[in-house]
Lab assay of single mutants.
Amino acid sequence: IRCIGVSNRDFVEGMSGGTWVDVVLEHGGCVTVMAQDKPTVDIELVTTTVSNMAEVRSYCYEASISDMASDSRCPTQGEAYLDKQSDTQYVCKRTLVDRGWGNGCGLFGKGSLVTCAKFTCSKKMTGKSIQPENLEYRIMLSVHGSQHSGMIVNDTGYETDENRAKVEVTPNSPRAEATLGGFGSLGLDCEPRTGLDFSDLYYLTMNNKHWLVHKEWFHDIPLPWHAGADTGTPHWNNKEALVEFKDAHAKRQTVVVLGSQEGAVHTALAGALEAEMDGAKGKLFSGHLKCRLKMDKLRLKGVSYSLCTAAFTFTKVPAETLHGTVTVEVQYAGTDGPCKIPVQMAVDMQTLTPVGRLITANPVITESTENSKMMLELDPPFGDSYIVIGVGDKKITHHWHRSGSTIGKAFEATVRGAKRMAVLGDTAWDFGSVGGVFNSLGKGIHQIFGAAFKSLFGGMSWFSQILIGTLLVWLGLNTKNGSISLTCLALGGVMIFLSTAVSA
Rank of each mutant, 00 (worst) to 15 (best):
Pro132His: 01
Asp348Trp: 10
Gly127Val: 00
Val46Leu: 03
Met277Lys: 13
Gln36Thr: 13
Phe457Asp: 12
Arg138His: 15
Met206Gln: 05
Ile341Phe: 09
Leu82Met: 07
Thr126Tyr: 01
Leu269Val: 05
Gly408Glu: 09
Lys38Ile: 06
Asn208Met: 08
Gln253Asn: 07
Met345Gly: 03
Asp67Met: 11
Gln36Trp: 13
Asp348Gln: 02
Ile484Arg: 01
Lys251Gln: 14
Leu322Thr: 01
Gly232Lys: 07
Asp230Lys: 04
Asn237Gln: 15
Gly102Ile: 03
Ser385Gln: 12
Leu107Phe: 12
Ala422Met: 15
Ala69Met: 10
Lys251Pro: 01
Phe108Gln: 06
Thr194Trp: 01
Ala248Ser: 11
Thr156Trp: 07
Thr470Ala: 15
Arg138Glu: 07
Thr313Trp: 06
Pro171Leu: 07
Thr313Ile: 12
Gly425Asn: 06
Cys488Ala: 10
Leu186Met: 15
Val97Trp: 08
Thr19Asn: 06
Lys454Ala: 06
Asp348Ile: 00
Met495Arg: 00
Val343Gln: 05
Ala229Asp: 14
Thr406Arg: 01
Glu55Ser: 12
Leu378Gln: 03
Trp429Asn: 09
Arg299Thr: 06
Lys215Val: 02
Gly469Arg: 00
Ala275Val: 15
Leu269Tyr: 10
Asp155Gln: 15
Ala264Trp: 13
Lys281Phe: 14
Ile484His: 09
Arg164Met: 14
Gly106Ala: 15
Val6Thr: 00
Gly435Cys: 01
His398Phe: 05
Asp348Val: 01
Ser368Asn: 15
Asp87Gly: 13
Glu136Tyr: 07
Gly263Phe: 11
Glu370Asp: 15
Gln350Met: 12
Ser286Cys: 12
Glu320Phe: 02
Leu284Ala: 01
Glu240Val: 14
Met151Thr: 07
Lys283Thr: 15
Leu212Arg: 02
Val114Arg: 01
Ile65Val: 15
Phe411His: 07
Arg99Lys: 10
Cys92Glu: 10
Lys93Cys: 12
Asn154Pro: 04
Met349Val: 14
His210Val: 14
Arg193Asp: 06
Gly324Ile: 07
Met375Tyr: 14
Pro318Met: 10
Tyr305Val: 01
Ala176Asn: 07
Thr427Leu: 02
Thr427His: 02
Met421Asn: 05
His144Val: 07
Gly187Asn: 14
Cys116Gly: 05
Ile341His: 09
Val415Tyr: 11
Ala165Val: 13
Pro363Gln: 07
Gln147Ser: 06
Gly5Gln: 05
Ile407Pro: 06
Phe119Ser: 08
Phe411Asp: 10
Gly476Glu: 07
Leu378Cys: 04
Leu424Ile: 07
Asp71Leu: 13
Trp429Ile: 07
Thr254Ile: 15
Val169Ile: 14
Phe183Trp: 10
Tyr90Arg: 08
Thr49Glu: 01
Val415Thr: 06
Val328Leu: 07
Thr500Lys: 15
Arg416Gln: 04
Thr267Ala: 13
Ser16Asp: 03
Thr369Asn: 15
Leu258Ser: 04
Ala319Ser: 15
Lys443Thr: 13
Thr233Asp: 02
Asp87Asn: 14
Lys118Val: 00
Ile152Gly: 00
Asp384Gln: 08
Tyr137Asn: 08
Ser385Asp: 13
Thr205Arg: 08
Lys395Asp: 01
Lys118Glu: 09
Thr325His: 07
Met375Leu: 15
Glu177His: 09
Trp101Gln: 04
Ser129Val: 15
Arg416Asn: 04
Cys190Tyr: 11
Val257Ala: 12
Met140Trp: 05
Gly104Asp: 12
Val24Gln: 08
Ala451Val: 15
Gly356Val: 02
Asn208Cys: 00
Gly282Trp: 05
Asp42Glu: 09
Tyr61Asn: 10
Gly102Glu: 10
Met206Asn: 05
Val328Ala: 08
Arg73Asp: 09
Asp161Phe: 13
Gly100Ile: 05
Thr32Tyr: 03
Gly392Met: 08
Arg73Gln: 08
Gly392Gln: 15
Leu25Gln: 06
Val243Trp: 08
Pro224Leu: 10
Lys281Ala: 13
Thr156Val: 06
Ala319Gln: 04
Phe245Pro: 03
Thr327Pro: 08
Thr231Asp: 13
Trp101Lys: 04
Glu162Cys: 09
Gly334Lys: 08
Ala413Glu: 07
Ser483Asn: 09
Cys74Gln: 09
Phe183Met: 12
Thr88Cys: 04
Ala490Cys: 11
Val46Arg: 02
Gln77Asp: 06
Tyr386Trp: 05
Gly482Ser: 11
Thr115Cys: 08
Asn103Pro: 02
Gly17Arg: 02
Lys394Cys: 02
His323Ile: 05
Lys419Ser: 03
Arg402Lys: 12
Lys283His: 12
Asp155Tyr: 12
Asp83Gly: 15
Ser260Val: 09
Leu180Cys: 10
Ser185Thr: 13
Asn237Arg: 14
Gly145Cys: 04
Met375Lys: 03
Pro39Arg: 02
Asn52Ala: 01
Thr353Tyr: 02
Leu489Trp: 13
Asp37Gln: 03
Gly356His: 06
Gly100Asn: 07
Leu467Ile: 14
Glu244Cys: 01
Asp230Gly: 13
Asn8Lys: 09
Met206Thr: 12
Asn163Thr: 12
Pro174Cys: 10
Ile341Gln: 09
Ser368Met: 07
Tyr61Gly: 04
Gly29Lys: 00
Thr170Gly: 03
Thr366Leu: 07
Leu322His: 04
Leu135Ser: 00
Gly106Cys: 02
Gly392Glu: 06
Ile341Leu: 02
Pro192Phe: 04
Glu162Ser: 14
Val423Met: 14
Pro338Trp: 10
Asp379Ala: 04
Asn154His: 13
Thr170Lys: 10
Leu498Val: 01
Lys118Asn: 14
Leu489Ser: 06
Ala333Asn: 01
Ser70Asn: 10
Arg73Ala: 08
Trp474His: 06
Lys480Asn: 14
Gly111Asp: 07
Val167Cys: 13
Trp236Gly: 02
Gly100Arg: 04
Gly184Gln: 09
Ser122Pro: 04
Arg299Trp: 08
Cys308Leu: 03
Arg420Asn: 10
Thr194Met: 00
Leu223Cys: 11
Asp426Asn: 15
Ala361Met: 11
Asn134Pro: 02
Glu55Cys: 14
Ile152Gln: 10
Met375Val: 02
Asp10Gly: 06
Leu269Asn: 10
Ser149Arg: 03
Phe198Trp: 08
Val56Lys: 07
Ala319Tyr: 05
Glu55Lys: 10
Phe411Leu: 10
Asp155Asn: 10
Glu79Leu: 03
Leu307Lys: 00
Met15Asn: 06
Ala227Lys: 03
Val12Gly: 04
Lys373Cys: 00
Tyr59Asp: 07
Val213Ala: 12
Ser455Lys: 13
Leu188Glu: 07
Ala63Val: 13
Ala250Thr: 11
His399Asp: 15
Gly476Arg: 00
His144Gln: 10
Lys239Trp: 07
Val33Met: 15
Asn52Phe: 02
Glu262Cys: 10
Asn103Ile: 05
Lys118Gln: 14
Val23Lys: 06
Phe497Ser: 08
Asp384Cys: 05
Gly150Val: 00
Lys118Asp: 02
Val473Trp: 06
Ser64His: 15
Thr76Gly: 06
Glu370Cys: 06
Lys454Gly: 04
Thr179Pro: 00
Ile4Cys: 09
Glu168Met: 04
Val303Ser: 14
Asn163Ala: 15
Phe314Cys: 02
Val167Gly: 01
Ala241Met: 10
Val24Ala: 09
Lys316Gly: 01
Val12Ile: 11
Ser58Met: 04
Asn134His: 07
Thr179Ala: 15
Ser405Ala: 01
Gly271Arg: 12
Gly404Val: 06
Ser112Lys: 01
Ala311Val: 04
Ser372Phe: 01
Phe497Asn: 12
Ser464Leu: 12
Ser51Cys: 09
Lys294Glu: 14
